[in-house]
Design a protein around this nucleic acid. Structure first.
Lengths: 374, 374
DNA sequence: TTGGCCAGTGAATCATGGA
DNA sequence: GTCCATGATTCACTGGCCA
């Protein structure tokens, strides 16, 4: 079943290609529930005093009346509604989306995400280390853009590589504000005239963090506003599959060249710090079965304030309460829950050692058994 | 006329008081176009499910107050629409508003601001130096909140003390991301039980920066969700008038005590680095009127490539083109605009001196006239 | 007076898999 | 769908107490 689905997807999904055309139409042509992550950097040609263009590039009549201002917002909102709905349809149930915007459009993006049932997980601030100053001294230096990370729905089991991001951040939790420089220098793609190939090329560092944090190797990442293909280049490098959609041929060409030049990291380079949750579950009974602890042996809480005794079936008894290592620990502490593996200790040579050590030994043996012989 | 208006305002506006009641009704009862700045910290509509415990099993004291509960986005949006409309009506034409929110509500706030014709000037990120961690490791640490600064309308001549903020920021432009600690320690107000008096008290440092940046001494600052009165306390300290609106009697009492304890800084302590833009406009004609330059005298561009002659009405003529110092300068340079004050120079003792020197002399005299005698 | 240790806390949409 | 057992998970700072 899973294999069949995989095959069907592989046939239907234009993996690792840049699809020409309007992103709404293209997304509507793709199979439902087929991509893991969407990254979208939609146009925010809003209120720029100049012309406002519809998604099909037709020009909205210039306006300065109040009601017409509203009509401009309405056009932008309708566009947002359409492409977000198309994006949501092709997301897997446990998929997620990132969108990026500035104050011109991000409030409308966020509100529409919520209206459609996406579940916001974080808003993230891209703090620019080298923003353009406010030349006229009339406002604050606009030194950031806003990203929104949202699951397809409230109960989506979204991917989040917590430990990897924590490791990336010197061992403390990654915060919602990220300091990343603008895309400049050699990374900034130029056209044949030496001008920048795209006005809003995003830095690879930004996509690197996003893709590392919220996908796993082999996942499918789709970008409906592909531009010069930062999403595709970083996805390829990190061993993810990508789908790009881009209307402008000039951008598609630049992006394709760029991706062709990009090297995919080999599998060993893709490993990141994993979560304990992903490791195989080991019942405490296994520890007793294997004789690592024997029935009747005593367990101690830290500080030895509480003592419990191991029983042959892997339950323990302490203070006349019987149950699992977790239940007895929670009871003795008067706490709603307790991780018995880290709470209880056994004595060796007069020292207290957490029983989690024993679980780690068992896990190491399991892994050794499952690893193919070299 | 101006005096009359001032008096009428003073009679109608409940300056420096905390008005009990629903903020929408109270704002509707106030005269239109009467306040300079609104700071609003509306309910966030957090949608919390069960309890949350820290890894040490202590329980997180969540915001579960009745005033933060809304049954749907539609209900929250209607509430937002109503209070923003009431707020907009009482703003002066050149007034501005600040709102603060988290990802739960700020996108809806921002979109509705735009819908009603407010003109967003900046979004500002309050980066918390000491945020609560993400205890379960399921998301990024939610380490910021978002503020939106908006003028009443697109062409409002809003107040922005650019130079003061630049000075506050070690001489470089203030950015849109502000690192400020949470309100804790002695600043955090407690009730008679020693518990926090309000679940979401904002730090005074945040309001200090906002009020300093976007009002002048004597301005009227209104806060429709007054809570424990941080806005009022900081406004009073900084020599601004405030109007607070608060529904809950317990909060009003705490706020009033707090404001009574707050001391207003004296006028000399309120002076901040002035912006050139805030300085009085000086027509070039004044320079001629005062005889600092005489009609017929010659002005020179830098390098003396161009020459113009002063005319009695404060216009100049160069290369057969007549107009203001700015117009003629722009014409001679073929530029769309030109700051005539720095472009043109006059000769004294064979040296070229920019005419801006003369404007500065005039301004110095104006300031000396307006400063009260000590 | 200073420093070390311990306890407390802050606008939070904070689990998962098997029966 | 529900119920239940397992068990994973925190950073910066403040203030009080005591040596």
């Amino acid at each position: 079943m899973a294999v069949k689905t995989k095959q069907a997807e592989a046939q239907a999904l234009p993996l690792n290609t840049i699809v020409p055309g309007d992103c709404i139409e293209v997304m509507r042509s793709l199979p439902a529930a087929s991509v893991d992550l969407i990254f979208a950097d939609p146009p925010y040609n809003l209120q720029l005093k100049g012309d406002l263009h519809r998604p099909d590039n037709s020009r909205v009549d210039a306006v300065d009346d109040h009601w017409d201002q509203f009509s401009s917002f309405a056009v932008y909102d309708a566009f947002t509604r359409d492409w977000l709905a198309a994006a949501r349809r092709i997301l897997k149930p446990n998929g997620a989306i990132w969108v990026i915007g500035s104050y011109h459009n991000v409030f409308r993006l966020g509100a529409e995400l919520q209206n459609q049932g996406f579940w916001i997980l974080n808003d993230v601030v891209w703090r620019k280390s080298n923003p353009m100053p406010n030349f006229r001294g009339k406002r604050l230096t606009n030194a950031h853009e806003t990203l929104i990370w949202a699951g397809k729905e409230e109960n989506s089991k979204y991917t989040f590589n917590y430990e990897a991001l924590k490791a990336m951040n010197d061992g403390v939790q990654m915060r919602s504000d990220w300091m990343i420089p603008l895309c400049t220098g050699h990374e900034r793609l130029k056209d044949e005239n030496g001008d920048k190939a795209h006005p809003t090329q995003k830095p690879e560092a930004l996509l690197h963090r996003i893709i590392l944090a919220t996908t796993n190797p082999g996942d499918v990442v789709l970008d409906p506003f592909f531009g010069t293909g930062t999403t595709g280049a970083v996805a390829k490098m990190l061993g993810r599959d990508f789908i790009g959609i881009e209307r402008e041929e000039a951008y598609r060409k630049v992006a394709q060249d760029r991706i062709d030049r990009t090297r995919r990291l080999d599998a060993s380079a893709l490993e990141v710090t994993g979560s304990k949750r992903a490791e195989p579950r080991v019942p405490f009974g296994n520890v007793v079965e294997r004789g690592m602890l024997r029935a009747g042996e005593e367990l101690y809480s830290l500080g030895s304030r509480h003592v419990a005794r191991v029983r042959p079936d892997g339950t323990i008894v302490g203070n006349d309460v019987k149950g699992s290592i977790h239940q007895v620990g929670a009871h003795l502490e008067g706490a709603p829950s307790c991780n018995g593996w880290t709470y209880w200790h056994f004595k060796r040579d007069g020292r207290l050692i957490p029983i989690d050590i024993l679980r780690q030994q068992i896990r190491a043996e399991i892994e050794a058994d499952e690893r193919p012989a070299h």
